[in-house]
């Protein structure tokens, strides 16, 4: 087990043993974000967890992009970043509105679609 202190090595493809842990971390972060979304009641924290899921996706994208030796992964992540920013702006605006309505940030205040 040789510790690799390599930086900037983008000229060759990653072996599977190197790629796998990145993907595992990405999956773990995604799952953690998902669990957070499902279990927390605070609207803002819920959105934060969605951002965490974005992060995980971005990591997977970069890892696979590196695996396939193009820049497409990184380009994609830039756009994901873009969209995440836009979405965060909208989401927070909506959260503020919702908070004004009910004076609470709890997601349980909004159950009117109950069937």
């Amino acid at each position: 087990m040789t510790p690799m202190l390599t930086l900037g090595v983008s000229e060759y493809a990653l072996p599977a043993s190197v790629l796998a842990p990145y993907l595992f971390v990405s999956a773990a972060m995604f799952a953690i974000g998902l669990i957070g979304f499902l279990t927390r009641k605070n609207l803002i924290i819920m959105f934060l967890c969605t951002e965490l899921m974005f992060q995980a996706a971005g990591l997977a994208l970069i890892a696979f992009g590196r695996h396939h030796l193009g820049e497409d992964g990184q380009t994609f992540v830039i756009f994901v970043l873009c969209v995440a920013a836009a979405e965060a702006a909208m989401a927070l605006a909506l959260v503020v509105l919702l908070f004004r309505r009910r004076e609470t940030l709890s997601a349980e205040a909004w159950k009117e679609l109950k069937g």
């Binding site: 087990m1 040789t2 510790p3 690799m4 202190l5 390599t6 072996p15 599977a16 043993s17 190197v18 842990p21 990145y22 971390v25 773990a28 972060m29 953690i32 974000g33 669990i35 957070g36 279990t39 927390r40 924290i45 934060l48 967890c49 965490l52």
Partner: peptide, 26 residues
């Protein structure tokens, strides 16, 4: 068999920090 070395010490470091922090987030 796996054809190479692992991802390296820094990766494990960063991964541990990332995962630990995300767990604390939730």
């Amino acid at each position: 068999l796996t054809g190479g070395a692992g991802p390296g010490l820094f990766f494990y470091l960063f991964a541990a920090i990332a995962l630990g922090a995300s767990i604390r987030v939730i």
